[in-house]
Amino acid sequence: MKNFPSLKSNTDFQRVYKNGKSYANKALVMYVYENALTYNRIGISVSKKNGNSVVRHTFVRKLREIFRLNKIEKKGLDIIVVVRVGADVKDYHKLESAYLHLLKSHRLDKEDVEENK
């Protein structure tokens, strides 16, 4: 099994929080910061206020799969996704549409990348 490209250390998270650009919608907040790597990394933050460990880990698994399936053309990004408290995103498709909306806000979706070429 391959390692998933994720942010793990607190210093990585703090760097993205302090220096990254953020956009939000009702369900998620997304921070994006450029790194010096040749691949993208994702960090997912879910508060205990969202539910117990089973609920929080379900959010994490869904967001990892959404990140994996919706490849970002631009490389070298650190991305943090924060699930907002009380967000009605139990449904996978609602969570995916919120994620894609934030990618579009950051101009990282496929259509915006093709326009910039």
Rank of each mutant, 00 (worst) to 15 (best):
Phe4Gln: 00
Phe4Arg: 06
Pro5Val: 01
Pro5Arg: 09
Leu7Gln: 06
Leu7Ser: 05
Ser9Pro: 08
Ser9Trp: 12
Thr11His: 12
Asp12Arg: 01
Asp12Trp: 04
Phe13Gln: 01
Gln14Ala: 00
Arg15Cys: 04
Lys18Gly: 11
Lys18Gln: 09
Asn19Gly: 05
Ser22Asn: 11
Tyr23Thr: 07
Tyr23Gln: 08
Ala27Cys: 12
Leu28Lys: 07
Leu28Trp: 04
Val29Gly: 08
Val29Lys: 10
Tyr31His: 10
Tyr31Ile: 04
Tyr31Asp: 02
Val32Lys: 00
Tyr33Gly: 11
Glu34Tyr: 14
Asn35Gly: 13
Thr38Leu: 15
Thr38Lys: 15
Tyr39Arg: 03
Asn40Val: 08
Arg41Tyr: 06
Ile42Trp: 02
Ile42Gln: 09
Gly43Arg: 03
Ser45Trp: 00
Ser47Asp: 07
Ser47Gln: 08
Lys48Thr: 02
Lys49Asn: 09
Asn50Asp: 04
Gly51Ser: 06
Val54Glu: 02
Val55Leu: 05
Arg56Ser: 05
His57Gly: 01
His57Arg: 10
His57Asp: 00
Phe59Glu: 09
Val60Asn: 05
Val60Cys: 08
Arg61Phe: 00
Arg64Glu: 03
Arg64Gly: 06
Glu65Ser: 00
Ile66Val: 08
Arg68Cys: 03
Arg68Ala: 02
Arg68Val: 12
Leu69Arg: 09
Leu69Asp: 04
Lys71Val: 02
Lys71Met: 13
Ile72Thr: 10
Glu73Asn: 14
Gly76Arg: 12
Leu77Ala: 01
Leu77Pro: 05
Leu77Gly: 07
Asp78Glu: 00
Asp78Gly: 10
Ile79Ala: 01
Val82Cys: 12
Val82Met: 15
Val83Ile: 10
Val83Cys: 03
Arg84Lys: 13
Val85Ser: 14
Val85His: 15
Asp88Val: 12
Asp88Tyr: 04
His93Arg: 11
Lys94Glu: 09
Lys94Asn: 11
Glu96His: 10
Glu96Gln: 09
Ala98Val: 10
Leu102Asp: 06
Leu102Phe: 03
Leu102Ala: 05
Leu103Val: 12
Leu103Thr: 07
Arg107Ala: 15
Arg107Gln: 15
Lys110Trp: 04
Glu111Ser: 13
Glu111Lys: 15
Val113Gly: 08
Glu115Lys: 15
Glu115Ile: 14
Asn116Arg: 15
Asn116Lys: 15
Lys117His: 10
Lys117Pro: 08
